[in-house]
Design a binder for these strands. Structure first.
Lengths: 232, 232
DNA sequence: TAGTGGTCTAGACCACAGC
DNA sequence: CTGTGGTCTAGACCACTAA
């Protein structure tokens, strides 16, 4: 019972909120009131309330007090794991088939999705599960940010997992959309009109672009799942 | 300079990690060492380190110390806003056109995506932007969890925004996939083979299912964007 | 201006896991 | 055993802002 009093306070308050007993906008007790109620130091109460505020469950305003937050924009924590891990977790054999590889200088015509200057390495390939195409990948790598990529062998190991282990990054942006297979129909082994899930990712390391990747999955072979709690 | 010393400590440590100066597995100074280094109380250091641990940037072990964490599965914070808000933020007029509405008893043939017993309200409709179909929505609402839905008027207001304001929820699960328009081609005003982005969401309130919704967006009208940092 | 949260101090005892 | 993180105390001063 003496263990983690701050967690207990947090849980008690969270229960009032999630059960609906305290509606959005309801003013919750002040830190000093809770301190008296639980017979503990103010810092312990503060720890619980700060955690709730960080989680977005309450809003805190000086002088006014703390209030149950209104539901915000829904946000989900989306996991985008390594494709190899996904396939192997299904018990299937994974391989990466490199289709093309070319280095382009800074003078090359800029490709819209990746504005980095300097030399770039362009790769295309197919992720293969149990001998069947699983996803098509088109990738650009900024060689200034990842010089080791020049010598790396991507004919077996996918560029994604190589980068994950060799190049630190600080920010990424995803775009998730749908498209027809189109020109990727042949390498994916589907018709040109087959619907596909397209995941694009731009990755930076401190303002410097590191890589751009576009992965295209035939609709019946992959989907993304996200679990989440509200107001997070 | 006296402001938020714990944030400063956190930022300093985070910089060492993100810059790569401290590789994964590197042992970072102990709380007592940092306390001496910054000339502050141990609790201030603890606050910074606890935040880093919560964020997944470090791992902490008693007696052993704190260590830079290895990159985990990539996770992104995905925003799934109200469709009405998306459309209006583009400066377009929004409306919801209800196509069908029916209440089914517990004895009705169970629909796979929603295993709740009890009465359900089934709705289909189209989200309209500037007079053009934007998305098709199919929704089931558990009337036991949201009794007010029986009287609600969904011919103008979308069920999603009504639920968001009237029914608290505790957990949701998303599935994001691609599909062809198929039988939704007519209401969406596209061909049957048009690729579409499909977002499914199951929502619970404390073990009890609240609602299931399937939204289908023609590929050229919508995509999801997520920004994130590593190891979060 | 008074009340609230924001932050920090300088200790303390404990649990746990390496050594 | 010993060092580390985990947690808590009983204060303190400050910043902000709503009344």
């Amino acid at each position: 019972m003496t263990r983690r009093l701050d967690q207990q306070i947090r849980a008690d308050l969270e229960d009032q909120i999630r059960s609906g007993a305290w509606a959005p906008g309801h003013r919750i007790p002040t830190e000093r009131e809770l301190m008296a109620q639980y017979g503990c130091a103010r810092m312990t109460v503060n720890k619980a309330l700060s955690a709730l505020a960080t989680a977005g469950l309450i809003e805190r305003r000086r002088k006014a007090g703390s209030f149950v937050a209104r539901p915000h924009v829904q946000t989900a924590v989306l996991e985008i794991p390594d494709i190899a891990a996904v396939i192997e977790s299904r018990g299937e054999a994974y391989s990466f088939r490199l289709l093309s590889r070319s280095a382009t200088g800074a003078a090359a015509p800029p490709e819209a999705p990746f504005e980095a200057g300097g030399e770039r390495l362009a790769l295309t390939g197919v992720h293969v599960a149990s001998g069947e195409p699983f996803a098509h990948e088109h990738r650009l790598i900024a060689l200034s940010a990842a010089p080791g990529a020049r010598q790396a062998d991507f004919s077996a190991r996918s560029p994604g997992s190589w980068l994950l282990e060799n190049v630190p990054w600080t920010l990424a942006r995803h775009r998730i959309s749908a498209r027809a297979a189109g020109e990727l129909a042949a390498p994916l082994g589907v018709t040109r009109t087959a619907p596909c899930l397209q995941v694009e990712r731009w990755t930076w390391r401190r303002e410097d672009p590191v890589t751009y990747v576009r992965q295209v999955f035939p609709a019946d072979r992959y989907d993304l799942v996200a679990e989440f709690s509200p107001r997070a």
